[in-house]
Design a protein around this nucleic acid. Structure first.
Lengths: 238, 238
DNA sequence: GCCGCTATTCGACCAAAGTCGAATACTGGC
DNA sequence: GCCAGTATTCGACTTTGGTCGAATAGCGGC
């Protein structure tokens, strides 16, 4: 594939033929701006692509399938819990993902790493801290805030790990269908939203249920809920 | 408004004349025994009634509708989250409920009190501590372990409070139907379990959905999940 | 007792969900 | 180029879900 390089996109790094992209997915414009500053420092000259919803995030990933980094807010329109993270990891395993969230509990951070995030950055973090995190991730390591020591208890509980691996098997369209189902929509409404026939939605629904190992939509939402930010954990046995 | 005062002290003293009951609901027989010791100390001569599931708990409440105290484990067969607590409070508002759980996070404790519990006792507590908690509750106060100061932030988040008041309006049978729905069962299976026709289950389901303000079973499940032990909270706005 | 209220039950009817088989299109591997 | 596998789409048919109207039973108030 021959490349015609636009002179304008000529980077100072000759070794890197194309300018690499960094995706920032956050529904808060102001916060995206702040993140852009951090990215500019950590990855000089990066092409920054923005998304403000799960939908636009995956659209961006389609057109730029191999970004250098993805900064992902856990709480965007269309996202429930670790849903988008799991899906992104499943379809773009090569992309390191830095999870951004206003939540700061250690449990959430460890679950994020358990779901394949390369780092977890609280929204309260300083620019310098974020830059440090991005650089650490770009060098191939994982990163957590100093407050949350990167201890051993990184294992997800059994039900959540199970749910994750099953959800990772969904195709993009199936994933969208499940997301809308988890919002309580009817097949008819999902069909209208996606611009396809109701029969198609039903076919996707059948595929989703089969991949999740359940037999009706109620059980499907129950399983999807296990990836919610706070999920149902059984009372630990005494 | 004009008062027809029902002299509560009188009712109380009359009731005191008979042996009062204390209900212990926990699916762990050994732990029930330990709780019995505590109850015997805090309420000498109390008649102790045991339940090992949500179903048997409400059966016991039917036959002893006015116990002096209810000790309720959050994690019994048939219970999901604060479900049983909310239902018990709604139908037997006069009964003070002491919630028992292996979970110890402050958040859970405050949510329990927010749902109308009189006290929250961690399973790790000593007998003496439990006895103290029971006595405090019997004197009309609420109680939390010393580790979780009884601070002001007792308010449930909006969605959960809404869900609670709606769930409190359900009749016992409707509550059972919703519980089984939340376990992913079909109407047909629920009907078999309850020993009624499928048409009856559908009628209950319609009533449940109307009371919850939703239009299909998927949304009903989603709403019921808000009372899960760990529930989905929106990322706090920055 | 009598009345109104609610909980529970059910059958018949219409709407939504789910299954099956199949067509089209795209992507890698040979 | 050709083939195999998969993603996406759809229509026809069966099963499940949900509404409506209605009957029965129990409970508390007057």
């Amino acid at each position: 594939m021959a490349m015609e390089l636009r002179p304008q996109s000529q980077a100072w790094s000759i070794a890197r033929a194309m300018k690499r992209a960094v995706l920032i997915a956050d529904d808060h414009p102001l916060f995206r701006d702040a993140l852009k500053l951090a990215v500019a420092q950590a990855v000089p000259g990066a092409q920054i692509i923005e998304a403000d919803s799960v939908h636009s995030l995956f659209a961006a990933l389609e057109s730029h399938p191999d970004p250098e980094l993805l900064l992902l807010d856990l709480n965007m329109p269309g996202a429930q819990g670790f849903n988008a993270l799991v899906q992104a990891r499943a379809h773009f395993p090569a992309v390191p993902i830095v999870v951004i969230s206003a939540r700061e509990d250690r449990h959430i951070m460890h679950r994020a790493l358990g779901h394949g995030a390369a780092a977890f950055v609280p929204k309260s973090a300083s620019i310098d801290l974020i830059v440090g995190a991005l650089r650490t991730v770009l060098s191939g390591d994982t990163w957590l805030p100093p407050s949350a020591a990167q201890d051993a208890s990184l294992t997800l509980d059994e039900g959540e790990a199970e749910a994750t691996s099953r959800l990772a098997a969904l195709t993009p369209q199936q994933f969208r269908v499940l997301s809308m189902l988890s919002a309580g929509l009817l097949n008819k409404q999902i069909a209208a939203e996606l611009g396809v026939s109701e029969a198609t939605v039903k076919a996707h629904m059948s595929a989703v249920m089969q991949k999740l190992g359940v037999s009706n939509r109620t059980q499907a939402v129950l399983l999807a809920q296990k990836l919610a930010l706070d999920h149902v954990t059984p009372d630990p046995a005494l």
